[in-house]
Design a protein around this nucleic acid. Structure first.
Length: 449
RNA sequence: GGUCCGGUAGCUCAGCUGGAUAGAGCAGCAGCCUUCUAAGCUGCUGGUCGGGGGUUCGAAUCCCUCCCGGAUCACCA
């Protein structure tokens, strides 16, 4: 999305916000402390973020074990876990963390570093990068002072149980707690502060949060709370919400370790790309290095395109076996078209001549010219609607039209030199636009495939 | 129950600031490689646009209502 906004003329700064503190990381820490025996990602060979995630799963297993021994435990999992010793330990750990207990902080740093190592690896493969990182561990204190500010301005209030809340019933929402009764910070506390920090640093007109639709409510609350505090810039907050990717059997549940996450999807997709490419004998004359690069281009292209071609708010069911196709309305189809154009250009060499403006055109040629001319408007519209799928669908249709053109009319062996020049020009221009559009989606296009 | 988001060919989607016979891909069927890459091209089959009302000369598109699916309504993130 950021590349589309840039192409539409916006000055974009990409930042990443890490939820690096809170009860969740404490759960992993407690489980690791109890059962870890000093294992590390290095000694186990498990990717850092997965390693820490595994301890989160272990925590929940331990909760389940304890509950077996507790009769009449509530059916509600969140209520039930409060009865377990391991959960109480996690709560204590959060308090210790906020109190700055050295041992707790050391463990927290150790485990978080493992997570970042894992994330960085994945970001690198995907070609994702951020200009700045925010860590909630560094913003929760500011968050508390913003909550205080709200209390002073009388837009927030302290409930009789001690928790600080904001009343949003007038806006059609409910009362929302902003700070725990025990004074510790929660997600929204930190997000209030992170938003303010971001604004102070960049003074941007729009602040776009790309976060899944399960947090729709959270961002409504965030925006309203900041507006109530009289912060005019909060009007620029926009939540780019998207429906989650699901497996054919339902949602991925990290709590139960059903985390068929980005890494699994990527490796699966690369494997299929390699298999198909070899089958077609497309890597003749490629070095081993070039071949690996191509598998990556095609595999990632297929995966990214599959996700970006549909409206963000439409739920995606991802089944590697069926979803990763290389024919039809797919990334590889568009990449293939680009490779084809490149092949034509290579063979044409440097024989470009003049263009004749008064030439009669075939229907496909007209169609191609029209579609080419729509590029700028499509980018603009996609940016306005925060919808990458408009670019994805546009470039697919362009590739389709080009392929019809390619089959219908000879380019290099056209009847006249004027025709040859014109078609070659049109072909190259299409290649440029396909490449630009795909780059806006974060998808590379190969010269050969 | 409240709020938000989806419901368009067997499947995955586009079209939704109203306009002519509702478009793609996949799947199925039939063709096209001695010519620039067949991961391609061409044709056929396939649709009560969730149901019902309404507004309009005209509705997949706007309004109302109901049904189905998802998300959410945490002192989790």
């Amino acid at each position: 999305m950021s590349e589309i906004l840039k192409a539409a003329g916006y000055d974009v700064t990409k930042v990443n916000i890490y939820n690096d503190r809170g009860i969740a990381i404490c759960k992993s820490m407690v489980a690791y402390k109890r059962y870890g025996n000093g294992a590390t990602p290095q000694t186990t060979g498990i990717k850092g973020d997965h390693f820490v995630g595994d301890w989160y799963v272990k925590f929940n297993e331990a909760v389940g074990e304890e509950l077996k021994a507790i009769p009449n435990a509530p059916a509600d999992k969140d209520e039930a876990q409060k009865l377990t010793s391991i959960f109480k330990e996690a709560q204590e750990m959060l308090l210790k963390w906020e109190a700055g207990d050295p041992e707790t902080i050391a463990l927290w740093k150790l485990m978080n570093d493992w997570v970042y190592e894992g994330f960085d690896e994945t970001f690198k493969v995907l070609g994702v990068d951020f200009q700045k990182d925010y860590f909630e561990s560094q913003t929760y204190k500011l968050g508390k002072s913003i909550v205080d500010e709200g209390l002073q301005k009388n837009v927030f209030y302290k409930r009789k149980d001690g928790a600080v809340a904001v009343d949003l019933t007038a806006e059609g929402l409910d009362e929302k707690v902003l700070l725990r009764a025990d004074g510790t910070s929660i997600y929204i506390t930190q997000d209030l502060a992170t938003a303010e920090l971001r604004y102070d640093e960049f003074k941007m007109d729009k602040m776009i949060y790309v976060v899944a639709n399960e947090q729709d409510y959270h961002f409504k609350v965030l925006k309203l709370a900041l507006q109530k505090l009289g912060k005019a810039w909060a009007d620029g907050i926009y939540h780019l919400s998207y429906a989650l990717v699901e497996s054919p059997t339902g949602r991925f549940k990290s709590r139960e370790g059903k985390t068929a996450d980005a890494d699994d999807l990527i490796s699966e997709v690369l494997r299929i790309a390699e298999e198909k490419t070899r089958e077609l004998g497309k890597i003749d004359g490629f070095t081993e290095e070039q071949a690996l690069e191509l598998y990556k281009t095609i595999g990632l292209g297929a995966l990214k395109y599959f996700i970006l071609r549909v409206n963000p708010y439409k739920k995606i069911i991802f089944n590697p076996e069926e979803s990763i196709d290389f024919h039809g309305h797919t990334g590889p189809f568009i990449q293939y078209t680009h490779a084809r154009i490149s092949a034509v250009s290579r063979k044409a060499g440097e024989t470009m001549g003049k263009m004749n403006e008064t030439m009669a055109l075939a229907n496909v040629e007209r169609e191609l010219i029209i579609q080419l001319s729509e590029y700028e408007n499509v980018v603009k519209s996609a940016a306005e609607k925060y919808d990458p799928s408009e670019v994805a669908n546009y470039v697919y249709n362009l590739a389709k039209t080009y392929n019809s053109f390619y089959h219908e009319l000879p380019i290099l062996t056209a009847a006249t030199e004027d025709e040859r020049n014109f078609r070659l020009q049109l072909s190259k221009q299409t290649g440029v636009v396909i490449s630009k559009a795909m780059n806006l989606l974060g998808i590379a296009v190969p010269e050969k495939m």
